[in-house]
Design a protein around this nucleic acid. Sequence first.
DNA 1: CAACCGATCACCT
DNA 2: GGTGATCGGTTGC
Length: 214
Amino acid sequence: MVKPILRKERVLPQGFYARDPRIVARELLGKILVRTLTHGVQQRLSGRIVEVEVYLGEGDLAAHSAAGKTERNQVLFGPPGHAYVYFIYGAHYCLNFSCMPEGNAGCVLLRSIEPIEGLDWMAKARGISAERISSETGKRLLTAGPGRLCQALGITRKQFNGAPLFRPDSDLRIADDGWRPRDIAETERIGITKSSHLPLRYVVAGNRFVSKQR
DNA sequence: CAACCGATCACCT
DNA sequence: GGTGATCGGTTGC
């Protein structure tokens, strides 16, 4: 896979997210998640989005917004293009992007990215040796999975829940380098019990960094 | 205020 | 392929 041409990086505007999350999810595949660390040494981390899931605002019992607005999920009901980060199983963070105009919930969960920049930093953050990530199976351990990618990019609820994604100077943003997936596959969502039959998981077909095979 | 439980992961067989 | 760890948000008493 080709590295992005940084000169041509274009940050996705807020309007991109102000739509049905099923549309946003499909168009997010192939885009680049960029994380810049501004504390201490300047460091840039990035990866190509290859797997996402949609959680609808209404009629989706698996969504955090299913029972209405609470203190925890209020970002989902706020303006589009903001990070919704939650803590799960006492161990992991998950990163979502709020979609739809303000007042409507609906979001996209990031499930896997293919790492591009800052792999050494990611390995440290994940507690994996530099040697281990020389192989492709090793690289998969960095960012294949929603909890893993958050740990690899240093994404926590405290720092990023509610953070805007659409500003060029956001520490977390989405860039478009022009790459487009050839095929997109739809499957059922992973790890849920309610509304599990809905085909709301989208993956770049054939990509080796997708978190689970079907 | 106690109990329940999950949009996961690592490690085991 | 199966399962326990771990903890904050939510709900019910």
